[in-house]
Amino acid sequence: MTVEEKIVKKIATRESYGNALKELAEEFPDLVVLDADLAAATKTSIFKKAYPDRHIDCGIAESNMVGVAAGLATVGKIPFVSSFAMFAAGRAFEQVRNSVGYPHLNVKIGATHAGISVGEDGASHQCNEDLALMRTIPGMVVMCPSDDVEARAAVRAALEYKGPVYLRFGRAAVPVINDRPDYHFEIGKGSVVKEGNDVTIVATGICVDSALGAAAMLEAEGISAEVINICTIKPLDEELIVKSAKKTGRVVTAEEHSVIGGLGSAVCDALCKSYPVPVCKIGMQDVFGESGSAAALIEKYGLDAKGVYKTVKGFLS
């Protein structure tokens, strides 16, 4: 693959999710997939086509679906529950907390269409609160992959891990940024994707690509930004973040999520404990989204490379 081909290669992480489920089905015979009438959108339809007997459509009833998954887990299945983040983490929050989290059951929640990149459907379907909600549940692993490579690795890691996991996927096609031979995924481990000395940008999901773009723009102006990719928001790789903060002294967080309770809050929690430095949180600033194309919304709310670049510049000046 040439460098140019690499740049243009884009895939939505929901697609990666559907592909991964199908790819891992033989290796994990207890894997079953549940959906709530959204298989075509969440891409569990890819799994359904190959393994129809292991795909359970629960109809438009997310609360029951989460409970059914809990019951399946008690008898040895590894259920992946799929819906939009709004319904998986939002509507069914209490079912996830009480029927999955409290008994620490081996249920995986594959939530797609997270954040404002849902686009045209508008605010009712743009979940910017799921990471905050899921983080608060004791024992819940929370992951937000940045691209196809990471999304597929996260699905495998979730399958190999015994316990509840929340996986956040997006609707919009995003560039593949982790396609390198030495790529290694581990739950709870972040990675420095660009080294720098002047400021640390901690990003998750689609904002990792934006952060890399912003870092390149900053570099052109002589500002050296370190970019950390955090896929696992809980448990957070606190050591990596604190180490970088000690080097740069300033931290910016970037996420396609509310600045309340998500990655930014998790990073602040970590820094407060051992090495407090000024932190600037990029994300949805306590507002609802709106209809529009994914690209236009990401630009409007300052989550693209240019937006991150501008905010970092402002923060540093």
């Binding site: 609360s63 059914v68 009480n98 029927s99 409290y102 008994p103």
Partner: peptide, 21 residues
């Protein structure tokens, strides 16, 4: 066999167990 107490949730988990069988 199942943690419960939040009303309405136990029946779903029980249905999941039956489906698993």
């Amino acid at each position: 066999d199942m943690s419960s107490g939040s009303l309405g949730q136990g029946i779903s988990a029980a249905a999941g167990m039956a489906l698993g069988a």
